[in-house]
């Protein structure tokens, strides 16, 4: 079975490229049995979400000069 080290890398790469069917299957089997990696996958999505907020949010606060 896939190790957590490999699963976490795929959970990150999933955000950057489409996974192959084989990768998807192996990752699916792994995360079905590994709550820690499931959580890691959610955190990867959160990181993306947080980054997008970060870019938009902080300037609205700092410079709303032309309101």
């Amino acid at each position: 079975m896939m190790k957590c080290t490999q699963a976490t890398q795929l959970l990150s790469e999933k955000l950057d490229r489409p996974l192959s069917n084989k990768e998807k299957m192996n990752l699916g089997i792994h995360t079905a049995m590994c709550p820690a990696c499931r959580q890691f996958g959610k955190q990867m999505l959160s990181l993306r979400d947080i980054s997008q907020r970060y870019v938009k949010q902080s300037d609205r606060e700092e410079k709303d000069g032309n309101a």
């Binding site: 190790k3 957590c4 080290t5 490999q6 709550p35 820690a36 990696c37 959580q39 890691f40 959610k42 955190q43 959160s46």
Partner: peptide, 13 residues
């Protein structure tokens, strides 16, 4: 062997 250390397992955010 490539599994999460017990203390380091990702927590729910």
């Amino acid at each position: 062997n490539g599994h999460w250390q017990k203390d380091e397992r990702p927590q729910k955010w």
